[in-house]
């Protein structure tokens, strides 16, 4: 079927290999560049949507009338495994700040656990959700809201409810359940949530300061969809 002659003259020439390899590499990079141009705006929009929907899980829509992504402040912070800074999104009704939402990162059993948490101005948790993790499937992944209700136990808690000594899993004398067969994962989540509340407590004045971001929000406007990453 194949009519190929194995020793076709010019194909044995070294230059042919170089040109072939170079040509294919060029074609592949051109295709990748084209693909990137075609998809990057769409991918950024999807990432912003993802961020928005994860923020919406911890800050109910009824609590704010502004675009959370447009009202973001960077806070210098060393806490929560995010050295440098942490971006805090502020929910407002009118000019009044009703809630703050931000991400925290903790070390789980399999790698980094990314959380998003919502806090009201008094420091009470509105909700915590896991955005991404690499915990053991079937064991550690019960921290996901879609797989169990465990993560909802944080709603309504604050730094002094339970008392600081009780901010741990039951095995460590704390207030929160662990999973059968997995203690490290819930322990890491509890620790990260507590760190998140401490982060809020230490930057509270800065975060709730009403005036400068109000103008920033007015400048960017509610319609602008700034990509979160």
């Amino acid at each position: 079927m194949s009519t190929e002659t194995p020793t076709a003259g010019f194909r044995q020439w070294v230059g042919y290999h170089a040109v072939l390899l170079g040509g294919i590499a060029l074609a592949a990079s051109a295709l990748l560049a084209l693909g990137d141009v075609q998809t990057s705006a769409e991918i950024a929009a999807r990432a912003a949507e993802d961020l928005k929907s994860s923020l919406a899980q911890v800050v109910p829509a009824s609590m704010h009338d502004n675009d959370l992504l447009a009202d973001a402040v960077d806070v210098a912070a060393a806490e929560g495994g995010r050295p440098g800074h942490n971006t805090v999104y502020r929910a407002r009704r009118g000019a009044r700040i009703t809630a703050l939402a931000y991400r925290m990162a903790g070390q789980g059993y399999g790698g980094t656990i990314d959380l998003v948490m919502g806090v009201d101005p008094t420091g009470k948790l509105l909700g915590v959700r896991v955005i991404s993790h690499q915990e053991t499937p079937g064991l550690g992944d019960r921290i996901e809201a879609s797989k169990s209700d465990w993560i909802k136990a944080f709603t309504g808690r604050s730094l002094d409810d339970p008392s600081p000594a009780k901010w741990g899993v039951k095995k460590d004398g704390g207030d929160f359940d662990q999973f059968t067969g997995a203690t490290i994962t819930p322990r890491a989540v509890v620790k990260t949530v507590k760190e998140g509340l401490e982060f809020f407590a230490s930057h509270r004045a800065e975060l709730l300061q009403p005036s400068p971001p109000a103008t920033a929000a007015a400048q960017t406007g509610p319609a602008s969809t700034r990509s979160g990453s």
């Binding site: 295709l31 693909g35 990137d36 998809t39 769409e42």
Partner: peptide, 11 residues
């Protein structure tokens, strides 16, 4: 694979 990855992420 990279093209499939990007296309799926976008669409």
């Amino acid at each position: 694979v990279t093209l499939v990855d990007m296309a799926m992420n976008a669409w």
